[in-house]
């Protein structure tokens, strides 16, 4: 295939998913507001926010790493998304998944986080490293059940190839990992709560202690970049989960429904629970979800 066509497809894919992701973000804010008994912002608020922040007249930078931080972040989101085959069988949405397998996606997630952390670090505000330290710590913790689940899947399907994994789940709803390997799915879904940083795992951006956390020094276009990424990156993660555990999607509407439902799970939990302290959060992940993950591996490998 011509490389330019491939790039064109990738651009289309990115645009679609970014819009979807941002809309999703708007809906979630609405839901949270309603749960809190507020009216809440418009569903299109994220788009408005991006345009507004980007249009800010004053823009300050603390140095070149600060400048690059948001770019790292967005590149991380873009890359993660681009290495995932989004829709099974679709050429447009297969992205650059030929570059690598599940492991590549898992590690590319860190690309943006690390870059952002560095950029925020140069901002010099104490809240940034505070939030980052918490975020990194929590990340190490929720990665454990998630990676155990991924290992369980790798054992189950004997591959790290995402397309193969999705392919294996086609046919019947009972072929979904959700039903063939429920323990792994439980472990992974719990770690998704941490990944999405909704309560009770919202320690990184905890509004009472470290208002808005790492991005605190980010402004104007930098903030806009981050906001764009938030939509894209959230969607990318949801798609990854969908592919791994919920049979993937064969067309766009199914993808939207499935990812929406997956997201609703973490929104539902987030709206119902108060926030953990950092060490509580870490202990939580290292206890039950981890045990469930181990159980899933033992179950799938030896029974």
């Amino acid at each position: 295939m011509n490389i330019w066509i491939k790039i064109l497809y990738a651009v289309i894919s990115v645009l679609v998913v970014t819009i979807y992701g941002l809309t999703l973000g708007g809906i979630v804010r609405k839901i949270y507001a309603r749960v809190h008994g507020r009216y809440g912002p418009s569903v299109w608020q994220p788009f408005l926010d991006i345009i507004k922040t980007h249009g800010k007249r004053v823009s300050i930078s603390h140095g070149y790493m600060f400048y690059l931080g948001p770019i790292f972040r967005l590149a991380g989101g873009l890359g993660t998304y681009l290495f995932i085959p989004v829709i099974f069988g679709s050429v447009v949405f297969s992205n650059f998944s030929i570059a690598g397998d599940l492991l590549l996606v898992m590690y590319f997630i860190f690309f943006g986080q690390l870059g952002m952390a560095l950029g925020a670090g140069e901002g010099g505000h104490p809240y940034s490293p505070l939030g980052i330290a918490r975020g990194l710590s929590q990340m190490t913790a929720f990665e454990v059940p998630f990676s155990l689940a991924v290992i369980a899947i790798a054992i189950q399907y004997n591959t790290f190839n995402l397309t193969t994994i999705v392919a294996a789940q086609q046919g019947s709803i009972l072929n979904w990992t959700l039903f063939t390997n429920p323990l792994a799915v439980v472990a992974a879904m719990i770690s998704l709560l941490g990944m999405n940083m909704h309560p009770p795992f919202s320690i990184v951006l905890a509004p009472q202690e470290i208002p808005i956390g790492p991005p605190i020094e980010m402004n104007s276009s930098f903030l806009a970049t981050l906001q764009t990424n938030r939509g894209l990156f959230t969607a990318a993660k949801l798609i990854l989960f969908m592919n791994l555990f919920f049979g993937g999607a064969t067309n766009l509407p199914i993808m939207i429904i499935k990812t929406f439902l997956i997201y609703m799970f973490s929104v539902f939990v987030g709206a119902s629970f108060p926030r953990f302290r950092p060490e509580q959060s870490m202990r939580f992940f290292l206890k039950w979800p981890t045990l469930i993950g181990v159980a899933s591996i033992i179950f799938i490998a030896y029974f």
């Binding site: 290495f83 030929i98 570059a99 690598g100 397998d101 790290f160 190839n161």
Partner: peptide
Amino acid sequence: SSLGYWNGNLV
């Protein structure tokens, strides 16, 4: 490998 693939150049 028997499990997956990786194209460092493309990445």
